[in-house]
Design a protein around this nucleic acid. Structure first.
Length: 466
RNA sequence: UCCCGAGUAGCUCAGCCGGUUAGAGCACCUGACUGUUAAUCAGGGGGUCGUCAGUUCGAGUCUGACCUCGGGAGCCA
């Protein structure tokens, strides 16, 4: 008797006739008067459950097997055989079915063998991994994460774990969560009545990170090719289907690389990850294409096979101005591109992925490198059909005087960024990188509509349950 | 945060112009059915109509406030 993953039992890796044990949770049970029950059991190792054929001759058939309902935990041992029925290649002819855990009240068990709305499943986020769709999302999410690490590892990048807690309070990427051990009911005060953060845990104000980029630049300027992949926190009060207060971000940073080189990395990176999902999670993607979004697979294939076009912001504005389409927001040089503009560019004009580069300096962050024209910075966005912006990146300003000027222009005090400025004082080199919202990519890979379904336990304003 | 919309059985929903005992499908329970595929068929149990207040002879239905959820906007990844 061998304990096996259902994935292996169904894939043909195990010879028919072998005696095997599977362990998992009941999805459905169908009884036949022929004297047997069909119990579909899932262990999450693949999309499909295995059909356990339980004969009425089992000792516990009357008392237990015939009362199994969705969610019951079972261990089934028997012979793996080619299925007599349609719908599956192999099935398990059970010799024993041990019930490990019953469902207390089948009628009120939230995960029923029927379609549920995503809204309802969010209310039972601790149980939703037991559904087909969240099993699939979870496996694709894992596949994506592994592919990301593999891509960088194979290309000579070092994974750098930048801090979750930061004391840079003005990275310009949004509102931050405070980290403090002060007694809120009894705050220490300075002479002028302000809160005395010298009494706080770190001896100064501290927050949760909104980006690892500034920190990772230091490692980039020593290890040449690095990336971060970890949780990120934004305290913005945004209540949308595209925002989380806690999400995961991927941020590669490359030394001696200009913007064009980073755009090439972004393209090969996305192609690699999307191809890995197609190769490794065909079962789950087939489900998304069938039940969630018909375009799910075609969209991934398009990213893998279509070369990304590159245009600069100025050209994009000209294209949009001449577009035979009226936009809600009129296009003018100097303004940020709206979602409708981005979608037109990649879906109507290019009809494929496009990298837009060199944006007006006033709409981009302080650390982006000023171009020679003095009015644009070396920034890029990767836009994909049906997805919109999936990557934002830039070449970093490596010249100290220019960087200081940008900080002042953005109302930041260079004195607060001494360690960041050091990178430009000691052996500065051109370098660049980009950021990818992990859940946003996952939403679009799976064809989901709400980012709260792309992370196991979503944290959003007013809600951090489970 | 702003603008819309929605809260009725475990889930998804119907419930007309305010009027008798609030319905359906699925799920669950019982039974039937010779290998089923979200099986099928018959029967059964299951409700503080989001909360609070108000209008009315009478409120699931009308009004107000609040709560929760969803869609859109802003901000962004």
């Amino acid at each position: 008797m061998t304990q096996v993953a259902i994935r292996d039992a169904l894939s043909g890796q195990i010879a028919a006739g072998e005696t095997v044990t599977v362990r998992g949770w009941v999805r459905t049970r169908r009884d036949s008067k022929a004297g047997l029950s069909f119990v579909n059991v899932s262990d999450g190792s693949c999309f499909d459950p295995i059909q356990v054929v339980a004969p009425a001759s089992l000792a516990n058939y009357e008392d237990e097997v015939s009362h199994l309902t969705a969610g019951c935990a079972v261990i089934a041992t028997g012979t793996l055989v080619a299925s007599q029925g349609k719908g599956q290649s192999f099935e398990l002819q059970a010799d024993t079915v041990e019930v490990v855990g019953w469902v207390e009240d089948p009628e009120t068990y939230p995960i029923q063998p029927k379609p549920h709305t995503m809204e309802f499943l969010r209310e039972v986020a601790h149980l939703r991994p037991r559904t087909n769709i969240f099993g699939a999302i979870t496996r694709v999410r894992h596949c994506m994460a592994q592919a990301i690490h593999r891509y960088f590892h194979e290309n000579g990048y070092c994974w750098v774990n930048t801090p979750i807690i930061t004391t840079s309070d003005a990275e310009g990427a949004g509102q931050m969560f405070r980290v403090s051990t002060l007694d809120l009911a009894n705050l220490p005060r300075t002479a002028d009545g302000a809160i005395d953060f010298r009494e706080d845990f770190f001896g100064r104000e501290a927050f949760l990170t909104v980006s690892g980029q500034l920190n990772v630049e230091g490692y980039c300027l020593a290890l040449s090719k690095v990336y971060t992949f970890g949780p990120t926190f934004r305290a913005e009060n945004s209540n949308t289907s595209r925002h989380l207060a806690e999400f995961w971000m991927v941020e590669p940073e490359i030394a001696f690389a200009d913007l064009a080189a980073t755009a090439d990395v972004a393209e090969s990176f996305l192609k690699y990850v999307c191809k890995a999902i197609l190769d490794e999670r065909g079962d789950d993607m087939a489900f998304f294409a069938q039940r969630v979004d018909k375009q799910a697979i075609a969209r991934l294939e398009a990213i893998v096979s279509t070369p990304f076009e590159r245009i600069d912001y100025g050209a994009a504005v000209e294209i949009l101005k001449r577009a035979p389409k009226t936009f809600d927001f009129p296009v003018e040089w100097g303004m940020d591109l709206q979602t409708e503009h981005e979608r037109y560019l990649c879906e109507q004009h290019v009809r494929g992925p496009v990298v837009v580069t060199d944006y007006p300096e006033q709409i981009k962050a302080f650390y982006m490198r000023m171009n020679d024209d003095g009015r644009t910075v070396a920034a890029m966005d990767v836009l994909a059909p049906g997805i919109g912006e999936i990557i934002g990146g830039s070449q970093r300003e490596e010249r100290l005087d220019r960087l200081d000027a940008r900080m002042v222009q953005f109302g930041l005090d260079p004195a607060d960024y001494q360690w960041y400025r050091d990178f430009r004082r000691y052996g500065t080199v051109p370098h660049s990188g980009f950021g990818l919202g992990f859940e946003r990519l996952l939403v679009h890979v799976c064809g989901l509509t709400n980012i709260r379904d792309a992370i196991p336990y979503p944290r959003v304003p007013g809600s951090a349950e489970f």
